[in-house]
Design a binder for these strands. Structure first.
Lengths: 209, 209
DNA sequence: CCTGTGGCTTACCATTTGGTTAGCTTGCTG
DNA sequence: CAGCAAGCTAACCAAATGGTAAGCCACAGG
């Protein structure tokens, strides 16, 4: 197993270093000098290759998004909404994606929209085929569903701490909490309609005000 | 309605300004000078009152957490896991809390743990009383449930954009997506066990490797 | 009237940040 | 070999940031 420092081009090394650091810390908490140091180059080289820090971020965005889109099969965005490909990607990429969605970069916003749209189509199909529950508000449901699948990426630290796991991005950790999620998606969480009724009561109350 | 700039003490004005800005942008993207400007004071006064930026953040943490804990009834953390109080708080407070969880401050971590623990007890009670589904892994389920309730706070921008709403923190917006969430919690998302079966298949496959 | 004391500001400082410039090295090509 | 382009660096810069020092100002109490 060769060291990453040896073989890759400096440009790729910088991109990878940025990917890891941006994903772990957030873009604005990471300085170009930190990226350069991790890549083993001078900080001026980062600018030489990417122009600005924003340029570097865009390169990371494009790279990661290309991984997700061109993942295991072009139909990735057609089944579980591209999220399968995302979850199969390496931990650094996953972390970076989570950060990107949180930071709200334009590229991430576009990707998010795509995923939600694909998910809505997918669920619509599921309803037609009978394996998904119908919904009063399919658009909102698709959006919420996507945010829920992304939630573990956003709250990784808390999840791992609470579950006593070393790192949520470990496959073991992913397995455990995804099981809990699928359980809810399959059986629901509530055994009766009281929450739904309560919500409707609130809606009515507000509507009559 | 008086302007906030008039009556409050400068200290409180600074705290409120910090709360808003930190919540909207994230702590490290906001400078002390920006906070000071919004509060209408010099940036040195911020330091005079709170010592350091970290001190200011801790004050915000403590203030917001006290709002959540001492919200509508001390039993807040006993029913829907303190999240009800959180959602009833004003938009700035909600935004700040979301950021705090994402930034992973120690105080936020403690609060998160409390909420998860309270939620687990609450669900346990629900199972005993028959209004909640049983779970194979109650701890993981409680943790996932909490992250799911927090997800809209984390992905507010994306949610509002996708749903065509001006601001997720508007009550109208909250109503809409929470309805979709409760729907899933009540009816589930999948109408059969195929996702659960697929997960178990993966587990078996991994276990035998 | 003096004398604090607390709220508050101006002026300053060291550090870090993203970004620029000039120049060095290496290797390819005419 | 000349020269030229690409990869790369050291040195530098202006701006912004968190933080400090000194002092102003109002007002309470002796």
């Amino acid at each position: 197993m060769r060291s990453e420092t040896d073989d890759l081009t400096a440009r790729a090394r910088i991109r990878n270093a940025a990917l890891e650091l941006f994903g772990a810390e957030g873009v604005n908490r990471v300085s170009l000098r930190a990226v350069a140091a991790r890549a083993g180059v001078s900080h001026a080289l980062v600018l030489h290759h990417f122009g600005t820090k924003e340029g570097l971020r865009q390169e990371c965005d494009a790279y990661v998004i290309s991984l997700v889109r061109g993942g295991p099969g072009v139909e990735a965005l057609e089944d579980t909404g591209g999220l399968a490909a995302m979850l199969e990607a390496g931990a650094p990429v996953r972390r970076y994606l989570g950060r990107a969605f949180l930071d709200g970069t334009p590229a991430a916003a576009t990707l998010f929209d795509e995923i939600v749209e694909a998910t809505e189509r997918w669920l619509e199909q599921g309803v037609a085929e009978g394996w998904a529950q119908p919904s009063e508000d399919p658009a909102a449901r698709a959006a919420i569903y996507v945010t829920w699948l992304l939630a573990p990426l956003a709250f990784d630290g808390h999840l791992s701490r609470v579950l006593g796991l070393p790192d949520v991005h470990d496959l073991d950790a992913t397995m455990r909490y995804s099981r809990a999620g699928i359980e809810i998606f399959t059986k629901g969480l509530f055994a009766d309609d009281r929450a739904l009724s309560a919500w409707d009561a609130v809606r009515e109350q507000r509507g009559s005000r």
